[in-house]
Amino acid sequence: MTDESLVRACQTGDREAFSALYDRYIKKIYTYVYYKTHHKETAEDLTAKTFIKALEHIDSCDPDQRFGAWLYRIARNTVIDHYRTARPALEIDDAWDIPDTSDIARDADARQRLAAVRAEVQALPSVQRDILMLRLWEGLSYQEIAQIVQKSEGHCKVIFSRAIRQLRAANALAAFLIILYATHSI
């Protein structure tokens, strides 16, 4: 069944239809939230909140719009709410905005993996980060990304190219790697 028909079924009281949507999106949403929190327990907590909100507001979801994009938006806002509630004085969208030396919990593995790009990615606006992650880590199309971040497809492409430019400028390591891998294609 398509997302659209499942959403319509949910709106007529079919609980199994919501279960089907849950099974379809739980991994995606958890992964997305994890990318923005770097911490398993926090990601689980916020993923749970995302699905509870989705369940409570499924009657307001337009079946003709993409359910996935709607759900990602809820997840994105849930993450923002989480960090801004904890630190209301700061403009924080996700864990990337918080220095690595701060007291927030981060998984060791995520901390280690992201160490090499933390500084560069941290310098990007959160929407640029989101587009980078959704495009490069999640492999979503610009059409899907556009619906999640609520911008046009063309605008998303521009933002992505800006992010790449910014990373290129900042990435001194890349110059070294070019020499190292000059003869290797990737």
Binding site: A110, L136, L167
Partner: peptide, 23 residues
């Protein structure tokens, strides 16, 4: 004009993808 460098940036960023295990 900077394709090699851009490729490496994309590849390096892709490899940094955190390992997300869903419990």
């Amino acid at each position: 004009a900077e394709e090699d460098r851009i490729k490496i940036i994309i590849r390096e960023f892709s490899l940094m993808k955190p390992d997300t295990k869903l419990d």
